[in-house]
Amino acid sequence: MQLEDKVIIITGGGQGLGRAMAEHLAGKGARLALVDLNQERLDEAVAACEAAGGQARAYVCNVADEAQVVSTVAQVASDFGAIHGLVNNAGILRDGLLLKVRDGEITKLSLQQWQSVIDVNLTGVFLCTREVAAKMVELKNEGAIINISSISRAGNIGQTNYSAAKAGVAALTVVWARELARYGIRVAGVAPGFIETEMTGSMKPEALEKMTAGIPLRRMGRPQEIAHSVAYLLENDYYSGRILELDGGLRL
C-alpha cells in the first residue's frame, strides 16, 4: 500500500511511540487520525505531522469505551471520506508481582491493576479493530491493521497483566489476518523490546544500564525504528498474520 494520501488511524498517537509513528507516516504523505486522551499532546502531534508534510486531525477517545470508539471511527470516516489503515498502539502499564511477601505479609496484584491493562491493551485493540474493519468493508477500502504487541508476550516478571494482554494481541493478529483477508485487509504486528521513551527515560541510570546489558546490540531501540517498521508493514502488501520482533536480538 502506497501511503501517499492514505487515511491511517493511530491510537495513542499524541505521544511516545504513537507520535513517532505519526510523524514518520506524515513524512510519507499519509493523512492521519490521531487518537488519544490528552488534547494538548494531540494538538502538538498534529502540528508536528503537518510540519512533516502530512495532514492530521485529533480525536479524544478512550479506546476501552465501546461507545466512544464507535463514534470516533464514524467521525474519522466522515471527516476524511475513507479509512485505509489502523495502528493499535494505545497502551498502559500497571506493573506488579502476582504476590509479594514482606515480613510475612502477602500483597497481591489487584483486580484493578489487572483489569485496567486488559481493558486498554486488549479490549481496546478488539474494539478499534472491529469498528475500523467494519468501516473499511462498508467503504470498500482495502488496507492494513497493525497491532503493537511486545516481546513481553512471552512472559515477563512483574507483568502478569501486560504479558497476558500482549500475548492476546499477538494471537488476535493471526486470527484477524485469516478472517479479514477476503476483504482486502491485512493484519500484522510489531513486538518491540526495550525502547527509548519517556517511561524508560525516567528510570535510574543503574536500572537502565542493567536493562541494556542483556541486549546483544547493547542499546535500547529508538521510537523512529519502530515507526520505520510500522511503515514497512503498511507498505508491504504480502506481509500478514505475522509479528515482527524488534528487540535488538534480545529474544535470540
Rank of each mutant, 00 (worst) to 15 (best):
K140F: 07
Y59C: 00
A45E: 00
A171I: 04
V175S: 15
R182C: 11
R251Q: 12
G53S: 08
A74S: 14
G85F: 09
E245Q: 11
Q15C: 11
A26Q: 02
V175K: 11
A77N: 08
M1V: 09
N161S: 12
G85W: 08
C49V: 05
E131K: 07
V137Q: 08
T160N: 13
I10Y: 03
S229H: 04
L34Y: 04
A167F: 04
G201R: 15
A47D: 14
T107F: 08
S149Q: 00
G96C: 09
A74R: 13
D247N: 08
K100H: 15
L32V: 00
E196Q: 15
G189C: 09
R94S: 10
A67D: 13
V60T: 15
N161R: 07
A133G: 13
V125C: 07
L180K: 07
Y162M: 03
G54P: 01
L86D: 02
L98W: 07
E105C: 11
V175T: 13
R57I: 09
D79R: 10
G13T: 03
N88G: 04
A154Q: 11
G241Q: 12
A58N: 06
K135C: 10
Q55W: 11
V117T: 11
Q224A: 14
L111W: 12
L32S: 00
A177N: 07
K135R: 15
N89V: 05
E23I: 14
V101G: 12
Y232K: 04
A58S: 13
G104R: 05
K135E: 11
A64G: 01
E235Y: 04
R222W: 13
A188G: 14
V73S: 07
L86Y: 02
R19N: 12
V117P: 06
D103Y: 11
A45Q: 01
G54E: 02
L252H: 08
A48P: 03
G104T: 05
A167H: 01
A133C: 09
G201T: 04
A52L: 08
L139T: 06
C49W: 00
A56M: 05
S202V: 02
L217V: 15
G248I: 06
V125I: 07
K166N: 09
E225P: 03
A171S: 12
M199D: 06
M199W: 06
L3Q: 06
S116R: 10
Q159P: 00
I118T: 01
E142Y: 05
C49R: 03
A22M: 03
A74Q: 15
C49P: 03
I226D: 06
I106Y: 12
D5C: 11
L252A: 10
S78R: 15
L208P: 02
G193Y: 07
K204N: 02
A26T: 01
A165V: 02
H84C: 12
L233D: 05
E196A: 14
D119Q: 09
E235K: 02
N121P: 05
E105H: 14
G193A: 10
E235W: 02
R242Y: 10
I145G: 00
A154P: 04
L37F: 13
L25P: 03
I226R: 00
R102T: 14
A181K: 10
L17S: 05
L111M: 15
Q224G: 06
E105M: 13
V174P: 04
